[in-house]
Write a protein that binds this DNA or RNA. Structure first.
Lengths: 324, 324
DNA sequence: TTGAAAGCGCTACCAA
DNA sequence: TTGGTAGCGCTTTCAA
């Protein structure tokens, strides 16, 4: 025997399918007694709604898609964003699926009512295609100028955050600050780079590294910094290798050389000494992305651009020699 | 105007919807000319199949669910497993969604045709409920005895792998080996613990830590190890903090004290020196889980238990003093 | 090889 | 507040 249908429930409760439908969704239009008997019948039969039928009728999929930046391996930050999306959507009865990165992700767009994505790169042809396809799409961080505008944006003020940590380092005695910058093909990467460029409070030295640099690449980048007394490691996880480099060269982290991480990643939390880092709250960001998209889909469209607050956690790695 | 339907395509091509349906799915039963005109009409109209309608008709959802172990934060390993599932399922035209961890994950089971999960703990009531619910479910690693049997299992021989690294360390001169063990509420955790317990080639000292230990907890655990010359860090990411502890105590990693990580995690790869680690190939494991489940759903059921091979990558952190 | 048509299970409309 | 019913778009069976 197969799964019981709404008709089965209605029959058992002695009401119409229409009434049963309303009762099960806790909507108005049925008497309390009808509702009770429907619920009872449903429980007895073990009724679960047929999602496909409901979706067909409602002309939607009940699912949103998550498009993550392509890359061999998933950074912790994005994984957490994805979980945030999943939970927030789930709380509103909507499922979230991650678009496959192999093959054409667009094949799964029809499975969804809309897409959330994050850190769109101007080099990413798939992201461009998605933006051009016209599906509702909400992005974390702004989208580079040359790409079509998304439906909504949830953004962090990276210019301000980068200035903040630069000022902090100066306050702790730094005079020559090295920065390991990611590629500037994303808006946030470009904003951080601009903040460093325009900062006048100290000498800054920028070195570009990959978005997901290897340990060797990071060490090589560190070696190119000349006589710095502070380093800001921007890409996710980079601080770990920078710390290794500094120790290998007998620098005391937090006094000889200050170290700040732009991503408060799991790896950083396991470092010693604890590293000053920007808590990007990926999970909450994911939740905001999902909520924003669902609001758009519901028509209860809010502001298309909303800012997302993040803050620095100052820890021992930037204590400095001035204060003890 | 809304999205074109199959009927629109058929009308335009001058054929029946039945023929159009076959042609679009590249099935037999239509002439070459019919197929061609259908494909042309579909392209012109920009036809995309209505997933909900197809699913309703086919009596399935075209989606599988991923249930990840509950926890505050996502370990890199699980994130990669999830991506592997997503890609492998996607290649077969099936979407994969992560069951929300907040709220009742079972609410989304009706959205799926089956579930994959991993590292089932005997303490996890939700996993138990899922296993009891009767949905097809394939697990990574075996399920503890006291829980219902899953439909399929893809497992690693952790007993053998743990012995392997113990023997390796002995071969590199270790005589007193400390092991940071995870809780044994999972089968794999228990298997590793058993391998350590039964190993006779050296003195072993086990210390239990949490599944996702904090840096402080790991350091405390290290401090309890007495005069060891090698440490195996089992939980994901733990090696980072162990390395920090060792350096803080002026131990040279790879000579004074050997260090092996049981999870070849991103964080470990950024460590210095490179850490000997077990490459668990999470992505491939995820792919195998998805494939296994889809085979079950197709009825082309393979072996319910299949082994998954992983191997150690021996690196500088276990070079030892013997060889130089 | 072709076309007609039933019907998957649900929601929403309409009339009572 | 109730019940009857149309129909979402597709796949599949059945006859031609």
């Amino acid at each position: 025997m197969s799964r019981p249908t709404l008709r089965d429930v209605a029959t058992r409760a002695g009401v119409s399918t229409a009434a049963a439908s309303l009762a099960l969704r806790d909507l108005a239009g049925v008497s309390a007694s009808t509702r009770e008997s429907v619920l009872e019948a449903a429980a007895e039969l073990g009724y679960v709604v047929n999602v496909a039928a409901r979706n067909l009728r409602r002309q939607r999929t009940g699912t949103i898609g998550i498009y993550l930046p392509p890359g061999v391996t998933l950074q912790w930050y994005y994984a957490d964003v994805a979980l945030g999306v999943t939970d927030a959507a789930g709380a509103r009865g909507v499922a979230a699926l991650i678009l496959p990165q192999s093959g054409d992700p667009r094949a799964f767009v029809p499975y969804t009512d809309g897409i959330v994505t994050i850190d769109v790169s101007r080099e990413d042809a798939t992201a461009r295609a998605l933006l051009e396809s016209g599906v509702p799409i909400v992005t974390g961080e702004a989208v580079p100028e040359e790409l079509p505008r998304p439906t909504g944006v949830v953004f962090v003020d990276h210019y301000a955050r980068a200035r903040e940590v630069l000022a902090h380092l100066v306050g702790r005695g730094a005079a020559r600050i090295g920065v390991l910058l990611p590629p500037d093909d994303t808006v946030w990467g470009a904003e951080v780079a601009r903040a460093v460029r325009e900062f006048g409070g100290a000498e800054t030295q920028s070195v570009s590294v990959a978005f997901s640099p290897t340990s060797d690449e990071i060490r090589a980048a560190c070696a190119r910094l000349v006589d710095v007394d502070a380093i800001i490691a921007i890409p996710d996880g980079t601080a770990t290798s920078v710390a290794g480099f500094l120790r290998a060269h007998d620098h005391e982290i937090g006094s000889d050389v200050l170290l700040a991480s732009y991503t408060d990643t799991l790896a950083d939390r396991l470092l010693d000494p604890p590293v000053t880092a920007l808590d990007l709250r990926p999970r909450e960001l994911g939740a905001r992305l999902a909520t924003h998209l669902l609001d758009v889909l519901d028509g209860s469209a809010a502001n298309p651009h909303e800012e997302f607050d993040v803050e620095w956690h100052f820890r021992a790695s930037t204590r400095g020699r001035l204060i003890d």
